[in-house]
Simulated assay, not measured.
Amino acid sequence: MSHSTETDVLIVGGGVIGVAIAYELAKASVQTLVIEKDNLGSQSTRAGAGMLGAQVEMMAAGPMYELGVTSRALFPTLREELLEICGCDMELQTPGIFRVAVNEVDRQELLTRQVWQRSAGQRAEWYEDDELRRILGDDVISATYGALYLPDDHQVRNMAFLLGLVASAKALGAQFREQTSMSGFLTENGAIVGVHTLNGPIRANRVVLATGAWTGLLGRELNLDIPIHPVKGQSLLLNSYAPPTPYTIFTHGCYILPKRNGQVYVGATEEESGFDSRPNLGALAQLSNQAVGLMPSLASLPFVEPIAGLRPGSRDGLPVLGGVPGAPGLYIASGHFRNGVLLSAITGKVMREVLTGQQTSVDLTPFSVARSVNT
């Protein structure tokens, strides 16, 4: 039997972005409900690598770089908070990331990147190929054109991180409903006052769409052109009791992350394939060849499973954060593309500030909904 539910803030989408917002709101004693059409974290959160790559992922200085660095700095404190509240460990690993050059053009681009990142106050160290081998071992990595070492870029295990956020948010009063699909918006006098679900309407003072790759589709019901679209990423997991290196190895189209549970994550493709999230042999074969070419020792590791998910891409490569012009009561936190886990900490914080009427701790103008959403 359907029934009506009421809450102060309703978050649609139970991935790492939606859950991080719920956690921050729960800390502020804001009544919050998260609904997820599947299981929590079952979409791009489950499929992601978990890199906190504020430097390795960014090609140039700018708003995205600044947002990433700001968010990365929040993780040590966030880890301690989650451990204290619920005892869950996000499995933060801090050996750093080697961004490997595979040709001379790549080398020069990385040396240029080192200069501007150091000028921005970040640590970035260059290692020639022979120096890299002394650290990683000749049997671990193939010949390279050197590598940029980023000691402050780290990683977590996505689902361990999500579990900590969910358990902590619940402990602080947030509520979660899985297998609860939104079927439409509730509107009154032009304002968004909740959503319809198959289990009945949910009324809310504020509705946040943290719906990843599906955000653009949901906006169409309100005649909103939200510039977020799906980009498929395919990856694979390998088993290893002792990963060949503690470092994350990153190069064009391929990154290799050893996990604390003994697995090795190898990712990832970028494919414009609509909402088809199925893994396919060709993409995985290409990824496998590239990974083994970079790190030959991977060839002997047992294969666990393929992974595929839909990242929320945006037209300009920046996330969409904040209220929606012309749709009172509606907010968006989406479009994080490859950096959902990295940006989850700052997104949770600034969306809590937006939703509680506070001054935001970072300038959201570059990420505003108004910059690209046509009503």
Rank of each mutant, 00 (worst) to 15 (best):
Q263V: 06
L364M: 10
V354A: 04
I11R: 09
V354K: 07
L136K: 06
Y145T: 14
T245K: 05
P306C: 14
S361D: 03
C88Q: 14
E305V: 06
F161H: 11
T45F: 09
I35N: 07
D276L: 04
V354F: 00
L165N: 11
P95D: 05
V320N: 01
D106T: 05
F275D: 09
G253P: 10
N205Y: 03
Q290T: 07
R157H: 15
Q175S: 15
R133V: 08
V12C: 01
E270W: 08
F275V: 07
P230M: 05
P302G: 00
D8G: 13
M295H: 10
Q31I: 10
F176D: 14
M90C: 03
L321Y: 08
F98C: 08
E36P: 03
L40Y: 10
F250Y: 15
R203V: 05
S29C: 12
P366C: 12
Y145S: 13
V16L: 12
Q93I: 02
S277K: 11
L52A: 06
A61T: 14
I192M: 04
E84A: 15
G348N: 14
R99A: 04
L237S: 10
A47N: 00
G274V: 01
N158P: 14
A291E: 10
G253Y: 12
H336W: 06
L148C: 00
L224C: 14
R371W: 07
Y127C: 07
P95G: 06
E80Y: 14
E188P: 00
G137A: 09
I85V: 15
V30D: 07
S168A: 15
S334C: 03
P366G: 13
Y149T: 01
S142Y: 09
V362H: 11
S361H: 12
V102W: 13
N223W: 01
E131N: 12
V100M: 09
T5R: 15
V264Y: 04
A191H: 06
L162G: 00
Q155H: 01
N158V: 07
I228V: 14
R72Q: 10
E81F: 04
I11F: 03
V292A: 04
R338P: 10
I226G: 02
A285V: 14
V16G: 06
V19A: 12
G121S: 04
N205R: 15
P366A: 11
N374G: 07
T215N: 04
E125C: 00
L10A: 07
Q108D: 13
A54K: 06
D363G: 11
F176K: 02
M59Y: 12
G233H: 03
L224R: 07
I307W: 04
V12P: 03
Y247L: 00
S300P: 08
A299K: 15
P246N: 01
H336A: 09
A333E: 01
A191S: 15
A268F: 02
V362L: 02
A171Y: 02
E36F: 11
T347Y: 04
N189W: 11
G262W: 07
G323D: 15
M1Y: 13
E353M: 15
H229N: 00
L237A: 12
A147K: 13
L110T: 09
K259V: 05
F303R: 09
V373A: 11
V193F: 08
L110P: 12
D130I: 10
L284M: 02
V56G: 10
V195E: 13
A54L: 05
V105K: 15
G200V: 01
R260C: 12
R157Y: 00
G357C: 13
S2C: 04
A327G: 03
L310G: 04
